[in-house]
Amino acid sequence: MNPQSNQFTSAMTADESAPAAPSEDIPELIIEAQKGWIPIHFGDLWRYRELLYFLTWRDVKIRYKQTVFGFLWAFIQPFLKMIVFSVIFGGLAQMDSEGFPYPIFVFAGLLPWQFFSESLSRSSNSVVGSSSLVTKVYFPRLVIPLGAVGGCLVDFAISFLVLVGLMAWYGIAPRVGILMVGPLVVLTVIASLGAGTLISALNVAYRDFRYVVPFMVQIWMFLTPVIYSVDIIPEDWQWLLMLNPMAGIVDGYRSAILGKPFDWSNIAISAAVALVLFFVGAVVFRRIERRFADII
């Protein structure tokens, strides 16, 4: 490196950093032991939004590295599941599919479920998997599970294309209800973040959760109307099923995609439970977060 270019670059950085300094005052930071329940620091999260972007991008990028099919896996996985479920539950077991072709009926449920279960399992291992970061550098730890969920959202968007193809195949035209997909995606993110943050934090303190999660996801799927219709449960007892936030959400997706009427009370119960779960997850996460570096 010649000295001239060196001088030039240092002069440039000096010039560029100079105007930045007065525009924002010197940030002050007080470090001390925090007591009790700590609220989420949204300002801090916002400041690290680029890190969230990069972590999501990294997750997506490395997931399909050194694979032959690459991004195609995001199509293949739900597609194969749909075929298997259609053969077993639609074909052999003759499950009721509310009058729709079973493949598209099950796919409309699989899509959000896949997103939720992937988000849940990835985010629950995310913090422990980032131990080298947690012990070496500060950033709002919530960014880690958020990034994991973000990566799954990208996959979700891709597999949505499969759905579009299926709808065309079965000649199902989208109705105005399809607009509900947006709010439903937000609800799914809230539900999976709730469960994800909760378990990722608990997993740092108690590694038992690593073994619990796969099992839990399986059971959870049977408690969610993915392969079956909500209608198989008597009307009076449906609210019980809706305490599982994914039940109302999955049923909502079906209404949005297949054009059957929305059951607003069911969606409302599930949405409320999802919000509670999100709140509990965030609170527990913040509670354990300050000990992360010491116990991870």
Binding site: E28, E32, S132, R290, R291, D294
Partner: peptide, 26 residues
């Protein structure tokens, strides 16, 4: 660098803090 919390006492930092505890973090 706010990786871990103190048990007692406090620190007051005036300015953006960058910490370098490892080469090739992340």
């Amino acid at each position: 660098s706010r990786i871990t919390e103190p048990t007692e006492g406090r620190a007051h930092m005036r300015g953006r803090v960058g910490s370098l505890l490892e080469v090739g973090t992340g």
